[in-house]
Amino acid sequence: MYQAIDLSFRVRDRIILQNVNLTIRPGEFTAVVGPNGAGKSTLLKSLAYENTNFRGQVIINGTSTSSYTPKSLSRVRAVLPQSTTVPFAFTAEQIVHLGRYTHRSTHIVNRAIVQEVMERTSTFSLKDQAYSTLSGGEKQRVQLARVLAQVWEETVHPRYILLDEPTSSMDIAQQQQMFALAKSVCSRNIGVMAIVHDLNQAVQFADQLYFLRDGKITAAGEAKDVFTKTNIEETFCCRVNVYHDPCNNCPYVITERTDTVPASIHHLKLKTSSL
């Protein structure tokens, strides 16, 4: 299990995270949703132990992250950032190979794993292309392949992947593919945690769903149970309706149309026009 226990983080006086408790179980897809600025990325960075200045604890497989070395940590968790730029001309395959950085396995094993994850992410045909020439969606899939390569081997302990809005530069077909893939790797004793922007996709794929607002968990539980009108409205401050989609046997959300521009935006417009 991958647990955040009583996680709090503040920058000077600003509270970014407040007493967050979160559990990622191997074999499950855990999604975190919330409005912009809710602290989702900070939560992910704290879980990844990239941000270390938090109060509280992050525990992976029974051991606190503070007791891990960068190397031993990389064997149990991999992270997919929102976007990655590479200043030098690496090929897609070289990028995926980097996922095997700390693994002292043989070339043959590494190559087999790289090929397998590239095939799974449908990036194998891109392997000799320069990374910088790929489209946004292709880059993201290559990065996912790298992340998978890092935790692909079956080990005695469960492994985890943390995805920060993995579908931000993808069309809807690619988004579905990405989430289906993330979900399918759960069967390899991998726990998946993803920050998801699209609520409907979150509820379609997630086993556990966390709502985050102003650094606090506002609701959490089995995805289909907590996906309610009240939870969504309270988290996002937006009028919505939740319906049931019989085709997916899954709830979905639609925003209620409003014709009144919120006061704050009016205010902003006035300010800029007076400049």
Binding site: S74, R75, R77, A78, V79, T102
Partner: peptide, 9 residues
């Protein structure tokens, strides 16, 4: 950050 995630000190 990515290098750190991959296990580089």
């Amino acid at each position: 950050a990515e290098a750190y995630h991959m296990g580089v000190n």
